[in-house]
Design a protein around this nucleic acid. Sequence first.
DNA 1: GGAAGTCAGTTGTAGGTGCAACCATTTTGG
DNA 2: CCAAAATGGTTGCACCTACAACTGACTTCC
Lengths: 169, 169
Amino acid sequence: MAAWVRLATVLELLPGVLDSQLRSDAGLTHFQYIVLSTLSEAPQRTMRMTALAARTHATLPRLSHVAQRLQDLGLVERFACPEDARATNIRLTAVGLQKVHDSAPGHAATVRHHVIDALSAEQVQQLTDITTAVLRRLGPHGATTASYTRYDLPTTPCADEPPEPAEKR
Amino acid sequence: MAAWVRLATVLELLPGVLDSQLRSDAGLTHFQYIVLSTLSEAPQRTMRMTALAARTHATLPRLSHVAQRLQDLGLVERFACPEDARATNIRLTAVGLQKVHDSAPGHAATVRHHVIDALSAEQVQQLTDITTAVLRRLGPHGATTASYTRYDLPTTPCADEPPEPAEKR
DNA sequence: GGAAGTCAGTTGTAGGTGCAACCATTTTGG
DNA sequence: CCAAAATGGTTGCACCTACAACTGACTTCC
């Protein structure tokens, strides 16, 4: 009982702290940051929308809206996949990559300050085990995003040679 | 690192699970449920808006919007505080109380299934300690709701004898 | 090889949330 | 006392998210 009440409180407060730090320092949502950050680690800084959605635990509509916004901001660009005309590839722009690099330290510091540094090394290990156990319950038959969350997709984009980033818009 | 990645994932997935269970079973948001539930435990099932906001870790504007919606649904009612003309009291209606009673078991089962039952008794204790430690960092100077989060307010509403619930709308 | 089904993604809409601005009331301080 | 500051709440606006409906492209399977 005490465990749940406190966990629920963390669930209520932590996202707000992360969002407001990122928003004021970089003008980004936590989720937007995750999207950019995930893209920055992908080969060619490019991914298929579905793969990105699965990785970020987002529904496809949600990702689509966010991608639209990030594209308006010039941080990502989307282009059709030549191999599968249904698919869309999303790629981090140079500006977007710079944005990730600029905002990563502040974000990491916030996480460290509010979570990691509050715990002993032993507790960090315990937290890893606990969250792993909970995620086992959340993942497989978690009521959310049932049909979208497919972890068996290839992460790599289908295009080997994406169109030159030179021409924009 | 592993701890944070997993915790972030829980932060992303758990609220969705809670919301969708409550929404489909009771037509309520998790936060709406918390508001109703908190009110149901208050003396007279009545609280001042500010006190309720502090208890639920919400900003006053957010609570005001939610209260408006819950009032439209007939689950709560608001009335001016006779002692301080600025203040507003919010009270759970009979219908609202019934709603809490009806939806509590399902919600509790969801929490148990997805969190508590996934852990050993020892881990539940560890989780309590960990969340307590994190909350110490989040509460005092947590960037969110700085001016609203006042825990030193009296929880009791100012009216000793609220107007009879008999007359509605 | 063509109809039926599935898949990738987008769009529209309704509701939730933060922030800033606002109004009314109370408190404070000269 | 009265003006200035602080308090309690509400409202408007912009953005985010879920859900449902839709389009267009691929697959299956006779």
